[in-house]
Amino acid sequence: MALLEVTDVHTYYGNIHALKGISISVAEGEIVSLIGGNGAGKTTTLRTISGLLRPQHGSVTLNGEDLHQYKAHQLVSKGIAMVPEGRGVFARLSVAENLEMGAYHRNDKDGIADDLKRAYALFPRLDERKTQVAGTLSGGEQQMLAMARAMMSRPTLLLLDEPSMGLAPVLVELIFSTIADINKEGTTILLVEQNAHMALQVAHRGYVLQTGEIVLQDSAKNLQRNAMVQKAYLGID
């Protein structure tokens, strides 16, 4: 059985029918990528999974457990961590404090210290800037911090919303290689990206969203070769 199962989800913003019956499944250990243009419903899907939005129809389950019986803040302890779009670091707190906040709901001091070490190993840049105020980090460093902070809650499923947004190409490469590293250490990842090219390189499987519906799903390799995807998202004619 898949780790995350999204079944026929309909989500509305007021009267606007944003998600029209989305079904996604993510197996343990996978990187799954949702790609699509602006307004396709990628972020809405993530927000629905993380409980910030409630669907009118359909269900979201993690390990078979219905997630919508929980409030958004309870999902962290269920093993879901989300890195919101635009990074959202606590701008006025230091890097170390931001990471500590990530482990907020945990009580095991030793485990937290271990994970802190692991986070710094994953992102050596953050180790150098431990005491710096997060708001003064560069965009790429803030993205790293947001990801490292999400990892501090020891999630089984990591939701990433547009991690490459507004970053220099070098940093995009670095972020994506780190995503692959995190996945290798055993965290399942659901990734939402406009940069389909990079997303499909690291992902195992992918879904293509258009105006609130899934129009295509396949392995990442096949999607990369798909003519429609190439034309619409990869810029290959």
Partner: peptide, 24 residues
């Protein structure tokens, strides 16, 4: 305290605080 941290993160950014698992 823990509560102080909660307040601090609430002050900084409500949305991120909720994403961190803080009961707003």
């Amino acid at each position: 305290s823990r509560l102080g941290r909660q307040w601090m993160s609430l002050r900084e950014d409500e949305d991120v605080a909720e994403a961190m698992g803080i009961h707003l």
